[in-house]
């Protein structure tokens, strides 16, 4: 996650470098957010100058302009969109599968004590397995094409969603449930009118964590033999010695990860306006 936080700033380096001086006065006004940009922009600038001045040849650590040029080149040839679409569709399918399964099992485990005692120990044991360890098995079972990749991503998404949903249901305030009981809500009405809204904030967090893991696992999945996708760009860059391509792919991962996370935040914000929490106001910003 730390990577995702840092890298958009790196990306913005390219966009802001030429006009950094011109807008320095404006930057002072937005000192808060700008402060976070200071370090990455400064480093990128320093590196750009170092390479430009001939202090380094910049072969293994390409300067920002070179990374940007690589991205433009990939975009022009249409290759970039092909790789992005491949990766995005894998993450989307795996995420949806993982979320559906995680929500279903998490809800069952959270709602029925018996099911929890029956199911949860097994799920927790499976969770203890490093998910990458499934890769050989998935390839044997599902082949080396899309299915095994999507399965791996779904596994990664499943666990945080499962845990989040179960934990959220278990921690719903008994006092609020009692209000539902005094108004004689039936089982389904209790779920719809009390439990669902009560678990929603924790569910959104679980979705975001799940999505983060989905992005993590798509790289692992694409490492295990893919002919397209951002993970393929990484491997390709390594094998053909193109560090600019590797960094470009990393930057794109950061942009996509941050954007999709932001989309979840935006989509759920209207449902969570009621929240009275320390971070409640930041959701709208």
């Amino acid at each position: 996650m730390a990577m995702t936080v840092e890298l958009p700033a790196l990306e913005r380096t390219d966009a802001t470098t030429p006009e950094t001086k011109a807008s320095s006065a404006r930057l002072r006004r937005y000192a808060g957010p700008a402060l976070g940009l200071l370090l990455p922009v400064g480093l990128a600038l320093a590196w750009e100058i170092a390479v430009w001045a001939g202090l380094s040849n910049g072969r293994l650590v390409p300067p920002p302009t070179k990374i940007f040029a690589t991205m433009v080149e990939l975009a022009k040839s249409g290759e970039l969109s092909r790789h992005i679409i491949a990766t995005l569709s894998r993450v989307a399918s795996g995420f949806i599968l993982g979320v559906v399964a995680g929500t279903l099992f998490g809800a069952i485990s959270g709602y029925w004590g018996l099911a929890r005692r029956l199911l949860d120990p097994t799920v927790q044991a499976l969770r203890a397995i490093p998910s990458i360890a499934w890769v050989p098995l998935f390839i044997l079972w599902l082949g080396i094409f899309e299915t095994s990749k999507i399965a791996l991503i779904a596994v990664g998404v499943f666990f945080p969603v499962y845990l989040g949903v179960m934990g959220a249901i278990l921690s719903v305030d008994r006092k609020i449930v009692e209000v539902g009981r005094t108004f004689r809500l039936s089982g389904p009405a209790m779920i719809r009118r009390i439990l669902l809204p009560a678990v929603l904030p924790a569910y959104v967090v679980a979705l975001r964590v799940g999505l983060g893991l989905g992005w993590m696992f798509v790289v692992a999945a694409e490492f295990m033999g893919a002919s397209e996708g951002l993970g393929y760009l990484l491997i390709d860059g390594q094998q053909l010695g193109k560090p600019a391509q590797i960094v470009a792919a990393i930057v794109i991962f950061a942009i996509l990860g941050k954007t999709t996370d932001w989309l979840i935040e935006i989509a759920t914000a209207p449902l969570l306006r009621w929240q009275d929490a320390f971070g409640g106001k930041s959701g709208a910003a």
Partner: peptide, 12 residues
Amino acid sequence: GIIFQEPRLLPW
């Protein structure tokens, strides 16, 4: 009907 010590309003 019952009223509790806390209002127990549904925050959403």
